[in-house]
């Protein structure tokens, strides 16, 4: 399973697969269906991840805007516009993260 070209021969692998399936079935009977474990800590780190994503997006947008301003000599203009775009980009990113969050936890 781990290594298709490993030392195990074809017949060995077949019987191993059967054994694995039997073990999985027995385990499911014993412990109930597998559940994805989500610790409290994981949700906390996810919240921080969203904050970082939002702030970083705005900062990146602001930096690009500042560079454009530096090039064209129009100081507050592009900084504000691209900072705003960065905020929208950040919200888009954190909404995507939240969507992944739902998928991970199943229907919950």
């Amino acid at each position: 399973m781990a290594d298709p070209d490993g030392k195990a021969g074809e017949t060995d692998r077949k019987s191993l697969d059967e054994l694995g399936a039997r073990i999985d079935a027995a385990r499911e009977k014993l412990e109930g269906p597998k559940r994805v474990q989500t610790t409290k800590y994981k949700t906390l780190s996810r919240a921080w991840q969203m904050i970082v994503e939002l702030v970083v997006s705005v900062v990146v947008g602001g930096c690009i805007g500042y560079a454009l301003d530096w090039a064209f000599g129009t100081l507050p203009l592009f900084l504000l516009i691209l900072g705003g775009f960065g905020f929208v980009a950040g919200i888009k990113t954190i909404l995507a993260t939240a969507r992944g969050f739902v998928e991970d936890d199943g229907t919950a």
């Binding site: 949700t43 919240a47 969203m50 702030v55 705005v58 954190i94 969050f101 739902v102």
Partner: peptide
């Protein structure tokens, strides 16, 4: 409640990000 936790985090992230901007 459980279905809405992602939105809770989105809200917290938004509020906290604005605070971090003032820190910046």
């Amino acid at each position: 409640a459980q279905g809405q936790t992602p939105m809770l985090f989105v809200g917290i992230a938004l509020a906290e990000a604005l605070g971090i901007f003032s820190f910046l």
